[in-house]
């Protein structure tokens, strides 16, 4: 199994960036995850995930515009690279495969 192994949190961040499309930067990523997954993540944790993935080449970033609402400090926008998309797909494939292999019966909830 070649390619890059993605952690669960990293996968969510990657997907969120893709969802946000042009508007993926620190605050928006954080808020999106909060609304969709009801997960409160710290900016620190997000920073670690983003910087690791950027190091691996899964995302790239560029400096955006400054904004009065940010104390005049520029945003940094993130975008998923092709490598990142591939990694996501790979992760999805693995899961899909596994889902398909699971015996149908097992999928029903056991009561009792």
């Amino acid at each position: 199994m070649k390619g890059t192994h993605l952690g669960e949190f990293q996968e969510i961040v990657l997907l969120t960036i893709m969802v946000l499309d042009d508007n993926a930067y620190g605050v928006s990523i954080k808020r999106e995850i909060k609304t969709r997954a009801d997960r409160n993540i710290s900016r620190g944790a997000l920073h670690t995930a983003l910087s690791r993935m950027e190091e691996k080449g899964l995302i790239k970033s560029w400096q955006g515009e400054a904004n009065k609402l940010r104390g005049g400090m520029p945003k940094r926008y993130y975008e998923v690279t092709n490598k990142g998309v591939n990694a996501l797909k790979e992760a999805k494939d693995v899961r899909d495969q596994l889902w398909n292999e699971v015996p149908r019966l097992r999928l029903q909830h056991n009561y009792g």
């Binding site: 609402l69 104390g71 520029p74």
Partner: peptide
């Protein structure tokens, strides 16, 4: 600093 502090401020005011 600019990225993180900017994010912190934006989040704070929100």
């Amino acid at each position: 600093y600019f990225e993180l502090q900017g994010d912190l401020l934006e989040e704070y005011w929100l």
